[in-house]
Amino acid sequence: MDSLERILQEHPFVKNLSPEHIQLIVGCAKNVVFEPGQFLFKEDEEASEFYILRSGKVALEIYTPEYGPITIQTVGEGEVLGWSWLVPPYEWRFDGRAVELTRAIALDGKCLRGKCEQDPKLGYELMKRLASVFEGRLYAMRLQLLDIYNSKAPKQTK
């Protein structure tokens, strides 16, 4: 427990959360390790966990019949992964595959939802942090959508 608490405290997502709230979260946490190529989760599976990544790299993939799995994003050290545990029907929307040896803290989604319901202050604090992650990802995704490096993109010079 002790070391989980320490690891969590140092992670950018959890940093500066009150000690009481960290303790509440630790109650839902476990250490996990994924070998390269191993799936953390697959599309349509129940999204039971939320990952706080400590090291390594995870590819988020969408399967396409034409090209097979396409990586839409990679996430790694210092980042978090997954919000499907937060919204019904609590199912993953894509695959998560470890590209490198990946170490993470997995938080049980059901347990975490329960703690947030019981302690709205913790719930609000986590929502604020998650909202900031969503905002960053949305922002990046928009740039990706623009396909700015494509030579057929609208002219950039005047």
Partner: peptide, 23 residues
């Protein structure tokens, strides 16, 4: 190095270059 999209043969980063800056 990061790319906007890739298949499985690529083991590097996927995402826009701005995502590399914070870390």
């Amino acid at each position: 190095v990061t790319v906007d999209r890739a298949t499985r043969e690529w083991n590097g980063n996927v995402g826009v270059v701005t995502t590399l800056i914070p870390r």
